[in-house]
Design a protein around this nucleic acid. Structure first.
Lengths: 209, 209
DNA sequence: GACTGTTCTCAACACCGTGTCGAAAATAAG
DNA sequence: CTTATTTTCGACACGGTGTTGAGAACAGTC
């Protein structure tokens, strides 16, 4: 039917796959991944359990696909800051704020995917790609600033992984403990923390001009 | 036999329990916890699989016991710095260095116990205690310094959780990627990062006098 | 419509790890 | 030696995973 484009239209199978992905995203928000059975996901997508394996090799493979979808969104969130120069506090703050709102929704499974030591080979592979990409993007920006005469001590790579880790963990903690600190406070604190960590000092925030 | 003290001596059962604990610690170093079967642990301790349940309710319960053992060691490692005042860089560095050497050995399962979102109720309970204790100890120290006129922005509690998270993640990354950066570099960088994060500036390290 | 290959579905099966139970063996105590 | 407690283990039931092969549903083609 769709002679346009090189790809076929959404066949029934494609719909099922989406349904599985969506069902999983929903289920993983509510319960630890380990407690979600394949039977349940298949049921939610309207197929039998054994039918699941036509679409994914395992629950981990499905999770990997889910993570893959998220990569793009993540890149967008941080794009502005990564493109800017120097201590662009506002861009950083905005990026972090956007990322936090996503974590507030999908935090549970994001956390399992990114922080769990043993999420299966598929997820591990996707995750590794994302992490290295994130680190290089970050350290590239830092190195650019460094050439402009900023930056404090520490290897840019190591700094990058620290910042990324700090971000993930802070969001994860915020997800677990929503009552502890309002989202705004978390974002502001994290923003300043990162700037201090990388550049050694806080820009406008410490002493409002 | 042991009329001294209120507890019985090391019966055969106590030895088995130790054997299980040790076997687990060993196995968890080599492989993800999920891949270690109870059968294997029981075998290593010289009993049948079903015998395991005489000593522990589940694998998670055993892990919780393991974590519990570690709490004490952790406290010792950081004791000096927690007791000191101001930016005692050397005490902090030493504590972190000690902690890292432990992570180098037991990193795999420590990570699973502390970073995994869903390690079972038993571990969750023990972990929570350790985390809150760690945070209060840390924030108490910071508040003490604050009264002496130091500290940067951010709620001490939030700062504390950030620092603890940063520490765990940095160690975890160092464990995964031993080749990336020498241990010394990791410790130095982390030390300065924490000081910068909390107090806003690096003491002697940045510009060697 | 009937023909053909692809896409999709599912019931039945084999497998593995967990946790329970109760009977019996080993051990300590009197 | 006798009794009570501690410890061991085989047998069982359960639940989730992944495979297989037969067939249904669905294109596209004449």
């Amino acid at each position: 039917m769709p002679a346009i484009g090189s790809r076929r239209g959404p066949t029934k199978g494609d719909q099922r796959e989406r349904a599985l992905l969506d069902a999983a995203r929903l289920a993983f928000r509510a319960r630890p991944i380990g407690q979600v059975t394949i039977d349940e996901l298949a049921g939610a997508a309207g197929i039998a359990r054994s039918g699941f394996y036509f679409y994914f090799e395992s629950k981990q493979a499905l999770l990997a696909a889910l993570v893959d979808e998220v990569i793009g969104e993540n890149d967008q969130e941080m794009a502005e800051w990564l493109a800017s120069d120097g201590l662009d506090r506002e861009a950083l703050r905005l990026g972090l704020a956007r990322a936090l709102t996503r974590w507030k929704v999908d935090g549970r499974w994001l956390r399992e995917a990114f922080l769990n030591p043993d999420p299966g080979p598929e997820v591990l592979h996707v995750r590794e790609r994302l992490v290295t990409d994130g680190c290089t993007a970050f350290s590239r920006r830092v190195e650019r600033d460094l050439r402009a005469g900023l930056t404090v001590n520490g290897d840019p790579d190591l700094l990058a992984s620290m910042v990324l880790n700090l971000r993930s963990m802070t969001f994860a903690t915020a997800f677990d403990n929503p009552a502890a600190h309002p989202d705004e406070v978390v974002v502001e604190t994290l923003t300043d923390a990162i700037l201090r960590l990388v550049y050694g000092a806080t820009p406008g925030a410490g002493r409002p001009a």
